[in-house]
């Protein structure tokens, strides 16, 4: 009896269509965002995250319309990430019907942006997305760094220290993606997830690498994640959200059914 662990399907959106990158490179078309969001809501998704991977700023406006359409029909929390750089970007997405925005690169360029956004719009709607990669040397203690540009560019920033700093600046939640695992279907980086989750007092969403339902449960049980995010296993109808929840429940995790 209490707070449920959340399952969050993630939709990568490019120019108004849902796609999914495998290791952020190959792209396969997966459909209409409103239709997919509606299906996830019916299956019992706890939230939906949209990641706008559109490169050109002209096409960003499309994302605002996608959010508006989804928010008129789907009454669960919506998060939007990708290209959120200014307070005005945050405002536009919230006004369109998003409940939270996810900030990634802009936080690395100017960490104060997170503080300003949290102060203006409230901590509850600011998610900081962290893309981390292991930089551990053989025999060394585990260490992860923040990478940008789809995992290609190192920043030299330690992932744990960064997560703590973002929490201190007012992030309401952390969306943690393992760049080593993303798209591999080999499971979350549980060591990374647990290290971040134990280092901060705010909720952590585990992301990157889900290939089986056990991976989702492991993220909660061993990674200590408060929520788990996955894309392809749901898009291509390998599993429904409900199956995922039943499986997690069978492994002793409290879920909303």
């Amino acid at each position: 009896m209490g707070l449920a662990k959340r399952i969050i399907p993630c939709l990568d959106v490019d120019r108004g269509r849902v796609v999914k990158g495998v290791r952020f490179v190959e792209i396969r078309d997966a459909g209409d965002p409103v239709e997919i969001a509606r299906r996830y809501d019916q299956e019992g998704a706890d939230e939906i995250t949209f990641l706008d991977i559109t490169a050109s700023s002209d096409d960003r406006e499309t994302m605002v319309h996608v959010v508006e359409q989804v928010a008129s029909e789907v009454f669960i929390p919506l998060t939007v990430g990708g290209g959120i750089r200014t307070l005005d970007d945050v405002r536009r997405m919230l006004n369109a019907g998003a409940d939270k925005v996810s900030i990634n690169t802009a936080a690395i360029h100017r960490p104060e942006f997170v503080r300003e956004a949290a102060e203006r719009f409230g901590n509850q709607c600011i998610v900081v997305a962290i893309d981390a990669k292991s930089v551990q040397q053989t025999g060394d203690t585990p260490r992860w760094e923040i990478f940008t540009h789809g995992g290609r560019r190192p920043t030299g920033i330690d992932a744990i220290a960064w997560a703590q700093r973002m929490a201190e600046y007012g992030a309401g939640e952390i969306l943690l993606t393992s760049m080593d695992r993303d798209g591999t279907k080999s499971g979350f980086d549980l060591e990374l997830t647990r290290a971040i989750s134990e280092a901060v007092s705010i909720p952590v969403i585990a992301s990157g690498g889900v290939g089986t339902l056990d991976h989702l449960a492991d993220g909660v049980l061993f990674g200590k994640a408060d929520a788990v995010l996955a894309a392809s296993i749901f898009h291509f109808a390998e599993y429904t959200i409900e199956q995922a929840k039943r499986h997690m429940q069978a492994r002793g995790i409290e879920v909303r059914l």
């Binding site: 707070l3 959340r6 705010i202 909720p203 408060d226």
Partner: peptide
């Protein structure tokens, strides 16, 4: 005995 996260975020009964 584990720490509970704040904000209290998500679906509760």
């Amino acid at each position: 005995g584990e720490r509970l996260k704040v904000p209290h975020m998500g679906w509760n009964q």
